[in-house]
Design a protein around this nucleic acid. Structure first.
Lengths: 220, 220, 220, 220
DNA sequence: GATGAATGAGGCTTCATTCAT
DNA sequence: AATGAATGAAGCCTCATTCAT
């Protein structure tokens, strides 16, 4: 890949380098629309504008396509969130948390982005390894980074002292809910849910809920 | 079962009354384990202890089994939650909300109970009508009852004045998250998540987050 | 059937005597409508107003029903035609032939009557024994009786001397054609074919065709 | 076939052009032997020397195979007969009629040729559209051409004035009878029926029957 | 005798995968 | 590298037949 091409290069070149991604893009669309089992290799090929046999030049099997798909998608958002957390400046963590939450919520709004997590959820039953892979490389990373920040806020007195793991779930759950909602339950005539408004109010409640209080404790 | 069996044990028994539920129970197990498409009618029959053909005496097709399954499961929990909301006594709504949340969380802990909602989530792509059915008869009922209570609390001054619909999501989301988590992402060696603790802390944060405040507003 | 019933008769009696015919009647209807293979035992039972299992009390199998059906139908018309031929009075055979032809044509007009021969034709591929049974007991009888008369007419000088077997076919073919036509090719908006007119003209041509001629031979 | 085969003989060959006809030929054989419903796709595939799945590359379903089969067979003989009628020279029609009749009778002698009409007759119950298709494109064409000629002969005084439609049936019926006879009723030890002799005598009787007469009318 | 619930072999059809071209 | 014809293993479903009631 790094060597210069041999002197007498043919004027054009098939680009097998681009193929896998072409295929995975197509597969993502079809998997999303039909689910893994109901997705037909024919449909993927057609979507990719190639022939069915060609897929097998790049992937061993249908399962392998799914695996590669998850694999390829495993990095970006989680990495970005992790980076945001790691580069959090000294001082209060609240703004970082807010930024991360908004970032996540906005990103999962796009159908292309939410496709993979939904795929993982849907196929977890049949491909537990995929789920655990995703868990390890995405979920644990994000939850870990988040709960780290929250713990730091608790330590510093910015927040009340609670279980940071569980608090993370309170913070994060509505994002997952949006994801599922958009994919599964939206109806055509629903009043659209504004993700920003939702997240803003949610974060406001959450923040208010974990800030130290001057007034006496509530007893639920 | 308590009478002595006839000399030559019959190969099968007539049980026209019990069959449909037997079949649905079996189908639920298999659908959960394999997903709808990968579930084999053979497997359902075997699980039910009957022959493949018998299923078709009671259900027109594999799809019909799924539909009946969702249908059968559509009532109980939602109805119970709705009732709790409707019978809420005068006065503060907080205890009712807490009770409802705990009830929901505990119930969705049981694999048998969470099976149907997860099935709906998984098969929504292929059976949108099922999803919208579930939405209408379960989700809307529960969310409606809950946000009604929250709105009442806001009116009465028990809570701050916020958007009750969105606040409902903040309240409810962790329950969905637990559902998905248990079904999809738990790993064998995870420290077990205690649903009660989780819900308790979540509710405490939520409540604290929407109570009226004496101290000046926070500016997130 | 001709003996007086035993002294202490029960006041009523299931009539297993009537059952087989009930069943065969029903089977004929269904076989005609669907063909043998596509006919369902369920449908026959329903048509007969009994339950599926009951059929098996009287017939060993679906095939047996077909066989019994053909068997039962094998006699009447053929016997009648044979009788007409055997009782032909001395003198010209023309009137007898005409009477037989009309009788056959009119009888095969009725759907119920034409059902069995069509069934034989349709299922001959799968049940050659049925076809040969029918051939022996029906076709050969009728064709034999007819060609016997024709031969007699040739002997006596009533007709020209030709091959009586083949002449029989010329005489008889339109009846078969009507049978097939009505069963297979009639369309809803066809001008109705009047069997009598058809047969009359046909017989007139046929007769004219085999009568001795005064004018010199035609050379086709 | 004449080139030396490659070292390792391929398990199958691509023959996309030839396949459909290969399949239809095989299907015709099997349908004839078993009837449509009892015919197994397996048997057709085997007869065609291909695998079951391959059939579905070319035909949507078993029904579609039958339809294509009828379709393919619908033209030739009828077209030929029609042409013979249309090109009939001026003058007497008798020779043309004789030629057409012989042509039809001889052609329906071949099992391959008579297979389709018999198939239509047998499956008319289940596929009425097929029957009416065949009626329109084959039967009506042939009967129409024939009765046209006969009518012309009546006009010109070549024949007596009778109903030409019905006369056509008198002329044509033995051909149908032969078709059915050969397919359904021949027995192994039958003295063979010579189609030519049969047709010759039949035509002679028919012709004689419709020629104008010098002797007084017969009164049947 | 009668019923109809239950069986289970077998059909049509689909589709992931292979392989001749 | 690419194609797409061909394969063959299953899957859903039907239905003749059996058998508990």
């Amino acid at each position: 890949m790094m060597n210069p091409p041999p002197p007498s290069t043919p004027r054009w070149q098939r680009q097998p380098k681009a193929r896998p991604d072409q295929i995975l893009d197509a597969a993502l669309k079809v998997f999303r629309a039909k689910g893994f089992m109901a997705a037909r290799m024919d449909a993927i090929a057609q979507q990719a504008g190639i022939s069915k046999g060609t897929i097998y030049l790049y992937f061993k099997s249908k399962n392998a396509v799914l695996e590669a798909l998850i694999d390829r998608a495993i990095t970006p958002i989680a990495r970005q969130l992790e980076t945001m957390a790691e580069h959090a400046p000294q001082g209060p963590v609240t703004p970082v948390l807010k930024a991360m939450l908004s970032f996540a919520a906005n990103n999962l709004e796009a159908p292309a982005t939410c496709a993979v997590p939904m795929l993982v959820i849907n196929e977890a039953g049949r491909f537990p390894e995929l789920a655990s892979l995703y868990r390890k490389h995405v979920i644990d990373v994000v939850l870990g980074a988040t709960s780290g920040l929250i713990a730091r806020g608790m330590q510093s007195g910015e927040f009340r002292k609670l279980d940071p793991e569980y608090a993370t779930r309170t913070l994060v759950a509505p994002v997952l809910m949006q994801l599922v909602w958009n994919d599964v339950f939206v109806l055509a005539d629903d009043p659209p849910i504004d993700a920003d408004t939702l997240i803003n109010q949610h974060f406001e409640i959450f923040l208010n809920g974990i800030l130290p209080r001057q007034n006496p404790e509530v007893h639920p």
